[in-house]
Lab assay of single mutants.
Amino acid sequence: MSGIALSRLAQERKAWRKDHPFGFVAVPTKNPDGTMNLMNWECAIPGKKGTPWEGGLFKLRMLFKDDYPSSPPKCKFEPPLFHPNVYPSGTVCLSILEEDKDWRPAITIKQILLGIQELLNEPNIQDPAQAEAYTIYCQNRVEYEKRVRAQAKKFAPS
Rank of each mutant, 00 (worst) to 15 (best):
S2D: 10
S2Y: 12
S2P: 09
S2A: 08
G3Q: 05
G3D: 14
G3L: 10
G3R: 06
I4T: 06
I4G: 07
I4V: 08
I4F: 08
A5S: 13
A5P: 08
L6N: 13
L6P: 07
L6I: 06
L6C: 11
S7H: 07
S7P: 14
S7N: 14
R8Q: 06
R8P: 07
L9Y: 12
L9I: 06
L9A: 07
L9F: 00
L9K: 08
L9N: 12
L9Q: 03
A10D: 00
A10E: 01
Q11F: 08
Q11H: 12
Q11W: 11
Q11E: 11
E12Q: 09
E12G: 02
R13F: 02
R13A: 02
K14R: 15
A15Y: 15
A15L: 12
A15R: 11
R17M: 03
R17N: 01
R17E: 03
R17G: 02
K18H: 08
K18F: 06
K18T: 07
K18R: 14
D19H: 06
D19G: 07
D19Y: 03
H20A: 00
H20N: 00
H20D: 05
H20R: 08
F22N: 04
F22L: 04
F22H: 08
G23H: 06
G23M: 02
F24V: 05
F24S: 01
V25C: 10
V25S: 08
V25R: 13
V25M: 10
A26N: 04
V27H: 12
V27A: 06
V27T: 04
P28R: 08
T29Q: 07
T29Y: 15
T29A: 10
T29S: 14
T29I: 10
K30I: 10
N31E: 11
N31Y: 13
N31T: 08
P32C: 09
G34T: 04
G34F: 04
G34E: 09
G34R: 09
T35Q: 04
M36N: 00
N37Q: 14
N37F: 13
N37P: 03
N37T: 12
N37R: 13
M39E: 14
M39Y: 09
N40T: 09
N40P: 06
N40C: 05
W41R: 00
W41N: 07
W41H: 10
W41C: 00
E42Y: 12
E42N: 05
A44G: 14
I45P: 07
I45A: 03
I45C: 14
I45E: 02
P46S: 07
P46N: 07
G47K: 03
K48T: 11
K48H: 08
K48G: 03
K49P: 05
K49V: 14
K49A: 13
G50F: 11
G50I: 05
G50E: 14
G50K: 14
T51W: 02
P52H: 14
E54V: 08
E54M: 12
E54A: 09
G55T: 05
G56T: 00
G56V: 00
G56W: 01
L57G: 06
L57D: 05
F58T: 06
F58W: 03
K59A: 09
K59H: 14
L60S: 06
L60I: 13
L60R: 04
L60P: 02
L60K: 04
R61T: 13
R61P: 09
R61C: 11
M62H: 05
M62I: 10
M62W: 01
L63Q: 14
L63F: 13
F64H: 03
F64E: 05
F64L: 11
F64I: 11
F64T: 04
K65I: 14
K65D: 05
D66I: 10
D66M: 11
D67R: 07
D67N: 11
Y68M: 05
Y68L: 02
P69R: 01
S70I: 14
S71H: 14
S71W: 14
P72I: 01
P73A: 12
P73Y: 03
K74V: 15
K74L: 15
K74A: 15
C75L: 15
K76A: 15
K76L: 14
F77N: 00
F77W: 01
E78K: 15
E78Y: 07
P79M: 13
P79N: 15
P80N: 13
P80R: 11
L81H: 00
L81G: 03
L81P: 04
F82E: 04
H83V: 03
H83L: 03
H83N: 01
P84H: 00
P84D: 07
P84M: 14
P84K: 00
N85A: 08
N85D: 01
V86M: 12
V86K: 07
V86H: 09
Y87R: 01
Y87N: 02
P88C: 02
P88Y: 07
P88W: 06
S89F: 12
S89Q: 15
G90R: 01
T91V: 15
T91P: 14
V92S: 08
V92Q: 00
L94C: 08
L94E: 06
S95E: 04
S95K: 04
S95D: 01
I96H: 06
L97F: 07
L97Y: 05
E98D: 15
E98P: 11
E98W: 10
E98M: 13
E99T: 05
E99Q: 14
D100Q: 11
D100F: 12
D100A: 13
D100E: 08
K101R: 14
K101L: 13
D102Q: 01
D102K: 07
D102E: 10
D102H: 14
W103P: 00
R104V: 05
R104L: 03
R104I: 01
R104W: 03
P105L: 02
A106C: 10
A106Y: 00
A106N: 02
A106L: 07
T108F: 15
I109N: 02
K110R: 12
K110N: 08
K110M: 06
K110A: 04
Q111P: 15
I112C: 12
I112S: 07
I112K: 07
I112Q: 13
G115T: 00
G115M: 04
G115K: 00
I116E: 05
I116D: 07
I116Y: 08
I116A: 15
Q117H: 13
Q117T: 12
E118N: 12
E118G: 10
E118S: 07
L119D: 04
L119K: 02
L120H: 00
L120D: 00
N121C: 10
N121W: 09
N121A: 10
N121H: 09
E122G: 08
E122M: 12
E122Y: 11
E122H: 10
E122I: 08
N124K: 01
N124Y: 09
N124I: 03
N124W: 09
Q126G: 11
Q126P: 04
D127L: 01
D127F: 04
D127C: 00
P128H: 02
P128Q: 02
P128M: 03
Q130D: 03
Q130M: 02
Q130S: 08
Q130T: 08
A131W: 01
A131Y: 11
E132H: 09
E132F: 06
E132Q: 09
E132S: 07
E132T: 08
E132W: 05
A133F: 06
A133I: 03
Y134N: 04
Y134G: 05
T135R: 12
T135I: 11
I136E: 12
I136W: 13
Y137Q: 05
Y137I: 06
Y137M: 11
C138Y: 00
C138A: 15
Q139S: 07
N140D: 14
N140G: 03
N140H: 09
N140A: 15
N140L: 02
N140F: 01
R141E: 04
R141W: 07
V142F: 12
V142Q: 12
V142M: 13
E143W: 08
E143V: 10
E143I: 08
E143N: 12
Y144G: 04
E145I: 09
E145F: 09
E145K: 08
K146W: 03
K146D: 14
K146M: 14
K146C: 11
R147Q: 12
V148G: 02
V148H: 01
V148M: 02
R149C: 05
R149F: 09
R149A: 06
R149L: 09
A150R: 12
Q151I: 08
Q151D: 03
Q151F: 05
A152H: 02
A152Q: 04
A152G: 07
A152V: 04
K153R: 13
K153D: 15
K154W: 06
K154N: 09
F155Q: 14
A156V: 08
A156T: 11
A156L: 06
A156P: 10
A156I: 08
A156E: 13
P157I: 05
P157A: 13
S158P: 13
